[in-house]
C-alpha cells in the first residue's frame, strides 16, 4: 500500500510537470498569436508571486478558516516551482540586460533559490535533530547551556576537595571550561562533523587511565555533561539554521515586490504607446 505522503508527493510532482508542460506549450502557441505576450505572462507571474507572499498573511491569521498551513505550504512549494517556469517564459530564457531588470531577475532567483534550499533543508534537518535527540526549545538553549556549564564547573571544583587532587579540575580548566562557556562547532554540526567531540572524548579517555576510581567517577559524570553540551550545540546549530534561511527568503521577497511594482509602472509608463499630454 502506498503511503499517502508518497502518493501526495507523486501526484504533486506529476501535476507540476503537467502544469509546466502546459505552460510552455501554451506559451509557444501564444507567441505568434499575442501581440504583447509579456503582459500576460507578467501579470500571471505577479499574481503567482502575490499568492506565494499571501502564505505569510495566512500565517498571521491563524484564527480564520483559510485552509491549513500544510495545504498552503504544499501549494507554496509547487506554485513556487511553477513560478520559476513562468519566470523563464516571461523573460524568454534570456538574462535581462539593464541594471534594473538584472537586479529584479537576480532578486527573483535569489528568493526562489533560498526557498528551494530552505524547503530541502527543512526536510533534512528534522530527521537529523530527531535522530540525535536531546530535544530542547530553542529559546531555552542558552539557559540550559548555562546550567550545564555551572554544573560542570561545580563538579570540577567539588572534585578537588573530594578526591584531594586537582587532576580533574585542571583538565576541566584547560580543556572543558571554554567548551561549556559558549556554543561550539556550529558549522561542524551543520556538516555533521563529529571530530571535535571525539577529540574531547579521546582526551577524557587519555586522562582516565591515570585516575583513581573516585576521580574516574567524577570524570565520567563530566563526560555525560560533555555529551549533553555537544548535543545541545547540535540542536542549537541546526535549529538556528532552520530559522536563519528565512532571514534571506523573507526580506528579499519584500525587496522583490517593491522592485516588481516599479517594474510594472516602468513597463507601462515607458511603453511606446504613452500619449503626450
Amino acid at each position: 500500500m502506498m503511503r499517502t505522503t508518497v502518493k501526495r508527493r507523486l501526484s504533486g510532482v506529476l501535476l507540476l510537470v503537467a502544469a509546466v508542460a502546459t505552460l510552455f506549450w501554451g506559451h509557444r502557441q501564444l507567441v505568434p498569436v499575442m501581440r504583447h505576450l509579456a503582459y500576460l505572462s507578467g501579470w500571471l507571474l505577479l499574481a503567482v508571486c502575490l499568492f506565494l507572499t499571501a502564505y505569510n498573511a495566512r500565517k498571521k491569521l491563524p484564527f480564520l478558516p483559510l485552509g491549513s498551513s500544510r495545504t498552503w505550504l504544499q501549494l507554496h512549494a509547487y506554485v513556487g516551482y511553477f513560478s520559476l517556469a513562468l519566470f523563464f517564459a516571461h523573460t524568454g530564457w534570456r538574462w535581462p540586460t539593464g541594471v534594473f531588470e538584472a537586479a529584479l531577475a537576480s532578486l527573483y532567483l535569489a528568493v526562489a533559490a533560498s526557498g528551494v534550499a530552505g524547503l530541502v533543508w527543512s526536510r533534512i534537518v528534522p530527521r537529523r535533530l530527531t535522530a540525535r535527540g536531546c530535544e530542547a526549545l530553542y529559546e531555552r538553549i542558552p539557559a540550559i547551556r548555562r546550567k550545564l556549564a555551572e554544573d560542570a564547573e561545580a563538579m570540577a571544583l567539588a572534585s578537588v576537595a573530594a578526591t584531594r587532587s586537582t587532576a580533574v579540575a585542571d583538565f576541566y580548566k584547560v580543556h572543558l571550561a571554554g567548551f561549556f562557556r559558549r556554543p561550539m562547532n556550529g558549522w561542524r554540526h551543520l556538516a555533521e562533523v563529529r571530530s571535535p567531540r571525539m577529540r574531547i572524548e579521546a582526551r577524557i579517555a587519555d586522562l582516565d587511565r591515570f585516575l583513581d576510581p573516585d576521580q574516574r567517577k567524577v570524570l565520567k559524570e563530566l563526560a555525560v555533561l560533555v555529551a549533553q553540551k555537544d548535543s545541545l550545540d547540535y540542536q542549537r546549530s541546526l535549529q538556528l539554521s532552520l530559522k536563519l534561511w528565512l532571514f534571506v527568503h523573507i526580506p528579499l521577497t519584500y525587496s522583490l515586490l517593491i522592485l516588481t511594482a516599479l517594474h510594472v509602472v516602468l513597463v507601462f509608463a515607458f511603453s511606446g504607446g504613452t500619449e503626450a499630454n
Partner: peptide
Amino acid sequence: DLARCTRCDDCVRACAAT
C-alpha cells in the same frame, strides 16, 4: 512527528494568536 517538525513554533504562535 519530530521527523517532520522544523521547530518553527508556528503552532505555538497560532495558539497565542487565538
